[in-house]
Design a protein around this nucleic acid. Sequence first.
DNA 1: TTGAAAGCGCTAACAA
DNA 2: TTGTTAGCGCTTTCAA
Lengths: 344, 344
Amino acid sequence: MSEAGSRPTLEAVAARAGVSRATVSRVVNGGDGVREPLAERVRRAVEELGYVPNQAARSLVTRRHDAVAVVIAEPETRVFADPFFALQLRGISKELTTHDNQLVLLLTEGRDDHARVGRYLAGGHVDGVLVFSLHLDDALPALIQGAGIPTVFGGRPGWSSDDDGAVYVDSDNRGGARAAVRHLVGLGRRRVAHIAGALDQTSAVDRLDGYRDVLPGADPRLIAEGDFTPAGGERAMRALLERCPDLDAVFAANDLMASGALRVLRERGRRVPGEVAVVGFDDMAPLAEQTDPPLTTVRQDIEEMGRLMARLLLGRLRGGPGEAAGGTAAGVVLSTTLVRRASA
Amino acid sequence: MSEAGSRPTLEAVAARAGVSRATVSRVVNGGDGVREPLAERVRRAVEELGYVPNQAARSLVTRRHDAVAVVIAEPETRVFADPFFALQLRGISKELTTHDNQLVLLLTEGRDDHARVGRYLAGGHVDGVLVFSLHLDDALPALIQGAGIPTVFGGRPGWSSDDDGAVYVDSDNRGGARAAVRHLVGLGRRRVAHIAGALDQTSAVDRLDGYRDVLPGADPRLIAEGDFTPAGGERAMRALLERCPDLDAVFAANDLMASGALRVLRERGRRVPGEVAVVGFDDMAPLAEQTDPPLTTVRQDIEEMGRLMARLLLGRLRGGPGEAAGGTAAGVVLSTTLVRRASA
DNA sequence: TTGAAAGCGCTAACAA
DNA sequence: TTGTTAGCGCTTTCAA
C-alpha cells in the first residue's frame, strides 16, 4: 500500500525479499517447493507492498482466466418478473467465489446479441459458460456448443439430451407435477384441470407430462395452455370454466398463473379450496404466501440449482476437456417438495 | 476457423496477409493510417483465420480491460425478492454492451466478502465499478472509494454526498412520496398515515421526508416504521389502526408493505379505497396490479437507472480520472410518476 | 530448493 | 504509410 502510482510487480516483491521472481511466483501460487524461511520473507514483502498479481499477465501465459460466463437468454421480460434469476445467480456466485472464479454476466435479447455472445465465448475470455435458455427454438445453445467451450445448461435443453454430452441441471418438474396432481386426487378431486405453461419451454412440457402421468385418461378439455403470466392464467381459467364448469381442482404450471386463476375463481364466486382446489408451482417468494388464500405449491430450490451448475462446470474445468466425451452424467435433476398452504 | 488446436495470433494473420504485426494491429483497432488495399488484405486474413484478439495480451500493455464490475451488497435476501435488481442489471448490461464492455458481477453477503471485493477491485481487473449498497452502515462503499477506482453508486449513498465526488444515480424518492401524499390529500383525505421503510436506507428516509414535506404538522402517531417486507407492512398497519382508528389513508414506502397493509385492512373490514385509500411505491411488476384492489403507486424507471449508471461510469472512464475532482454533477435523480389504479 | 531466461500475444514508440 | 523493436508482468522450463 505504498509506492503511489502504478502497482507493485513481482519484480518489486522479489527485490524487496531479496529473491528471484520465480521464487515469489512459487510462493504466490501456493508455495510448493520453497523453504519456509524464504517463503516467509516473500510473504512479508507481498504484504508490505500490497502486491496483487496482474491477472492479464498471468492469463497470458497460463491460458486460464478463472472466470466463467453466465449467459441469460431471454428476449422476453418474464425472467425479470420473478426472482428465479436472482436466486440462481446467487447460487452460482457463491460457488464461483468459493473457488476464486469471477462471474461475467452476458444478458441477451434477440438474435443480434447472439453473434456478440458467440464471439465473446469463442474469444477465450472465460474458461467455461453457464447457459440459461428457456425456449426450444433458441439458436443460442447450439451456437455455444459450437464454440467448443465447456458448458453447463440451466434447465433441460430442448433437443434430445443424449445428442451430445450436454450437461444440465434442472428441477424435477415432472415429479413435482406428479406430486401436485396426486395431492389433488388424494383430496378426493375428480375433475382436475391443468393450466400449462408456454409449451415451447421444457419446464412446461415436463410439468404437463407429470400431470398426464397421474391422469393418463384425463379429458383433454381439462388442459389449457397459458404463458406463465398472471394474465395468461386468467385467460386459461376462464376458458376452463367455460368448457368444464364441473371442474373441482386446478394445477397451474407456475404460481403466477395460479394467482391469475385464483382471481378469476373469486370473481366467479367459486370458493377456494371448498369448491375448487388450486396448486401452483415454484413457491415464488412473496407471491405464493400472499395470494388469497395462500397457495399450495411445489417448491424448487433455485439457489441450489445455481450452485450445482457452477460446481459441475468447475469440475469439468478441473477434470480436463476429456470428460464431456466420457460417460459423464448428462443431467442432474433436483427434487422438489410440495408446500401445503390453504388453497388445496 | 481452421488450424485446430490453439487460436491464431496476430503473427499468423500478419504472415498470411504478408504484412507486419503492427499493421494488423492497426487494422484490428480501427484501421487508422493504413492504406485501403492493405487494410482489405488484412481483413480478409483475419476473416479466413477466424482471428480473435487475445484480451489478456492486450490488457497487459494497454492497462485497460473494457470491463466493469457491478457490486451488489445485500446481506439480506430482500433484493432477491423483487425484480429491482434484475431490471437494473438489464439496464446496465445494455449500456455496457453498446460500448463493448463486459459486466463482472460481484455479489456479497456480509463482511467476509468485503475483503474479497476490495482485493478484486484494487487488483485492477476492471476499469470501473458500479455499486449498490442499501444500508447506511455498510462499510463497503467507503472501502471501494478507497480502492481508487472510478465508481458510480446506485441510490444515494448514506454519507453526505458532497463529501467526496461520489457520483450516484437515484430515483426521486422524495418527490415521488410528495406526489403520493398530495394525491391522497387531493382525494380529501385528512388522516394520512405513512408506513416507512427501514430507516437505515436512504430511500426510506427520503420517502418519509417527502411525506413530511406535504404534511409538516402530521401527527407522529400516523407514522410507523416497517422494513420493506409484506409482514412488516402488516405489523405497521396493525399498529397504526390501533393508534389512529380514524385514519383514512395510508402511504406505504413500497408495494410489498402496501400489500401487507391491504391484507390487514381487508381482515379488519375496512373498505379500500372507500374508507381507507392506499398508495404504494415502486410499481413492482406482478404485485401492484394484482393486489385487491389493484394498487395506486409511484413508478420509478429502474432499468433506466441502471443504464444511466453505466453511462455515467463509462463517461468518467473516457473523460479520464480528473473529472471526479472537477465540478461534475455528484448525483443524477430520475423522476417518478404516480400510477393510478383502484386503491386510491 | 533456487535462479536465469525465454516467451505468452499484443501495443506503441520510433525509424525508415 | 509501414515495419522494427522493446517491453507489459507473469509462469515455467532448464540449469545450477
